[in-house]
Amino acid sequence: MAHPPCQRWGRFWHGSTRKPHQFRKGEDEGCFAAALAAVRRWGGALEHPADSHAWAAFDLARPPRSGGWVRADFLGGWTCHVEQGWYGHFSRKPTWLYANGVDLPALIWGPGEQRLHPVALERHGYAKARRIGMAAMIGGKRKTEIREATPPAFRDLLLSIAASAVPAPLAGGK
């Protein structure tokens, strides 16, 4: 199971909106490339946030938001869009998976119900509460940890996918 750092591939790849473009898109010291190569070679799955710029950078097909496994590339890879909210995350947390050499399980597909933080709704109204999402209302010193956490049910699902991996044969039949 691979989970390369997503900070330089996501919506805020450039850094804080208060200090834009302090980073370069995809600047992850080769972590995504190494994770993708490992999954292609050894089998397994890779997890990244939905709409990750890494998919375009590595010529992977964008999965449909409606769900389902679709061909990701011409190397035997598959990709899908799934929301971790179906598996216990407090927000919908849309996620893309790339898998190769594994059994592709049926997942809970499609968008989950809209989740709005009641305090945000009361303070800011529907439009802003929807725009800022549930994660924006998480405060304290552990906000990043809480926001980025993978729910146990989703973790177990990912591990079961990885456990079904079959490595690709080496070139030359070895």
Rank of each mutant, 00 (worst) to 15 (best):
Pro118Trp: 15
Pro118Asn: 14
Val119Cys: 13
Val119Met: 14
Val119Tyr: 13
Ala120Glu: 11
Leu121Pro: 13
Arg123Gln: 14
Arg123His: 12
Arg123Thr: 12
His124Thr: 10
His124Phe: 14
His124Gly: 05
Gly125Ile: 07
Gly125Glu: 09
Gly125His: 09
Gly125Phe: 04
Gly125Cys: 03
Tyr126Met: 08
Tyr126Lys: 09
Tyr126Leu: 12
Tyr126Arg: 12
Tyr126Pro: 07
Tyr126Phe: 13
Tyr126His: 13
Ala127Trp: 02
Ala127Thr: 05
Ala127His: 04
Ala127Lys: 05
Ala127Leu: 08
Ala127Cys: 03
Lys128Val: 08
Lys128Phe: 09
Lys128Tyr: 08
Ala129Val: 04
Ala129Arg: 03
Ala129Ile: 03
Ala129Met: 06
Ala129Glu: 05
Ala129Phe: 00
Arg130Leu: 13
Arg130Pro: 00
Arg130Glu: 08
Arg130Cys: 08
Arg131Thr: 01
Arg131Gly: 00
Arg131Met: 04
Arg131Ser: 08
Arg131Asn: 03
Ile132Gly: 04
Ile132Ala: 03
Ile132Asp: 10
Ile132Thr: 05
Ile132Gln: 07
Gly133Glu: 11
Gly133Val: 09
Gly133Pro: 06
Gly133Thr: 08
Met134Asn: 11
Met134Leu: 14
Met134His: 10
Ala136Asn: 11
Ala136Trp: 05
Ala136Phe: 02
Ala136Leu: 03
Met137Cys: 13
Met137Thr: 08
Met137Leu: 11
Met137Pro: 09
Ile138Thr: 09
Gly139Tyr: 01
Gly139Gln: 11
Gly139Ala: 05
Gly140Asn: 11
Gly140Ile: 07
Lys141Pro: 13
Lys143Leu: 12
Thr144Gly: 15
Thr144Arg: 15
Glu145Arg: 15
Ile146Gly: 06
Ile146Ser: 10
Arg147Met: 04
Glu148Asn: 15
Glu148Ala: 15
Glu148Cys: 15
Glu148Lys: 13
Ala149Trp: 04
Ala149Val: 05
Ala149Gln: 11
Ala149Glu: 09
Thr150Arg: 08
Thr150Gln: 06
Thr150Trp: 02
Pro151Ala: 01
Pro151Gln: 01
Pro151Met: 00
Pro151Arg: 00
Pro151Cys: 01
Pro152Val: 04
Pro152His: 03
Ala153Phe: 03
Ala153Ile: 06
Ala153Glu: 04
Ala153Lys: 12
Phe154His: 02
Phe154Leu: 05
Phe154Asn: 00
Phe154Arg: 02
Phe154Met: 06
Arg155Cys: 11
Asp156Asn: 11
Asp156Tyr: 02
Asp156Gln: 10
Leu157Glu: 00
Leu157Ala: 01
Leu157Asn: 01
Leu157Thr: 02
Leu157Arg: 04
Leu158Cys: 09
Leu158Asp: 01
Leu158Lys: 05
Leu158Thr: 02
Leu159Asn: 12
Leu159Cys: 14
Leu159Trp: 12
Leu159Pro: 11
Leu159Ala: 13
Ser160Val: 01
Ser160Glu: 04
Ser160Trp: 00
Ser160Pro: 09
Ser160Cys: 05
Ile161Gln: 03
Ile161Leu: 01
Ala163Ile: 06
Ala163Met: 06
Ser164Trp: 03
Ser164His: 07
Ser164Glu: 09
Ser164Arg: 04
Ala165Lys: 02
Val166Asp: 13
Val166Leu: 14
Val166Thr: 15
Val166Ile: 15
Pro167Gln: 01
Pro167Val: 05
Pro167Ala: 02
Ala168Phe: 00
